[in-house]
Each structure stands twice: as C-alpha cells, then as structure tokens.
Nucleic acid binder design. Structure first.
Length: 215
DNA sequence: ACCGGGATGTTCT
DNA sequence: GAACATCCCGGTG
C-alpha cells in the first residue's frame, strides 16, 4: 500500500541528531501505538553528560540503559512511585540524549484512552502530561527499548503531512531542580492539550512577569 | 483560578 | 535516607 493517511514512519537519521534539533521537529508528528494515536504538541530535550537535569548525566545505569542505545529507541522510565514517562532516544549510540514526550492531542483510540484514564474528566486531559500520555497509551516498562523506527511492539512515530509549527513556543523545562534554567522545552502555541503554559513561577526579585498566551 | 499536600516505590547517595 | 523529568484532590478566593 501507499504511505496512506496514517503517514510514514520517521527514518533513523531523523533521530540521530542533537535532541535540541529533534525536539521541535517532533512537534505535530504522530505517536502511534496499536489503535491509539496522538499528535505530539509538547516535548523537552535531555542532553546527557552536559545536562545536569538528564538521567544520563552521571553515565549509564540499569535504569537509563536505553538512553545509551541506538537513536529511535523508546526510553520508558518509572518515577514518583506510580508514573511512567516516555522518551525518543536521539544522537549517536552511547551518548545518552533523548526527547521527552510531554503532551499529545488525542487522534484515534479515544475510547481506549478514556478507559485507561478514568481520572481524566475531559478528553483534553487524556494526554496533557508525560505520565498522562503513558497511562492513556498503556506504556510501561514492557515498552522500554522498543524501536520506533521499525514499529517494534507496535509503537512508532509517523509524519502525516502536518509540518512542525514555524514558531514553536519555548520555555524552561518542567519539574526539574538541576538544570532548571535551561530553555529546552518546546510546544505548539495555543494548543489546549499542552500540559501547562509556563513552568511553575520561579519567584525572584525583579523578575519580569511571565507573558503566556493561549486561548 | 490558584494554591498546598499526599500518594507511592524505584534508584541512587 | 533522600530525591524523584508527576498527578490528583480538596481547600480557598
């Protein structure tokens, strides 16, 4: 068949670059897992040994091993005792860099997502956070190390013809202590499925008031 | 709308 | 023992 309306998978060379380049290009691509699909609207870059906020900052461990594997791998980790988060591994093998998938706009398989996300009162809350989207898609440890390029375990990222936003919104990353000042978050301006407009206000004397915009 | 706190357990010091 | 790339609920305005 043709590539079709579901789009075509991203080649390995797409991932095999600096995560700060890959991240904004992942915006408006589509994450597909089984019958569920969602458009990527928010991402963050994690930059390995040069990034104190990255799990890979102190080198390989059992937990972060996937980050040091081939580009296009899916790094799924467990945090806060109950949540899973998913990243697309980037760069050269052995480097330990990745892009965190932070929010999606649900496209297909909404019934399954609702069943997996009983706490979500509105559809816009199904995938509006890194752990929410993993819960909605049923992503857990069993998906760690899946290859997005070959749709290993049924999960992949496709391009369905929608370009990334020409002027993506940027901010510092959400929820970090180390590396909190690095502006490596990108999102689709105005999209209601983004997790938050701006990170929790870090109050400092004389700081300018944040100027977020979104309908 | 905007807070504040609790849940929950793996990973690393 | 502390930290943690989070989420949800219940308070208050």
């Amino acid at each position: 068949m043709t590539a079709g309306r579901r789009g075509r998978r991203l080649p390995r060379r797409f991932y095999r670059r600096d995560p700060r380049v890959v991240a904004p290009e992942l915006l408006n691509k589509v994450l597909v897992a089984g019958r569920r699909a969602g458009r990527i609207v928010e991402v963050e870059a994690y930059c390995g040994a040069e990034d104190p906020g990255s799990h890979a900052f102190r080198g390989p461990t059992a937990r972060n091993a996937t980050m040091f594997g081939p580009a296009g791998g899916l790094y799924v980790y467990f945090t806060y005792g109950m949540h899973w988060c998913a990243n697309a591994v980037c760069g050269d093998e052995g480097v330990g860099v990745a892009v965190l998938l932070r929010a999606l706009a649900p496209l297909r398989g909404l019934e399954e997502m609702r069943a997996a996300r009983l706490a979500a009162r509105r559809d816009r809350d199904l995938c509006s956070g890194p752990a929410k989207l993993c819960q909605a898609f049923g992503l857990d440890r069993s998906f760690d190390g899946a290859d997005l390029v070959t749709a290993d375990r049924g999960i992949t990222v496709v391009d369905d013809g929608v370009d990334p936003p020409p002027a993506p919104a940027t901010s510092v990353r959400i929820g970090l202590s180390a590396g909190a000042d690095l502006p490596w978050r990108w999102y689709v301006p105005g999209d209601p499925h983004v997790s938050r407009l701006a990170p929790p206000p870090l109050r400092s004397p004389g700081a300018a008031s944040p100027s977020g915009f979104q309908g």
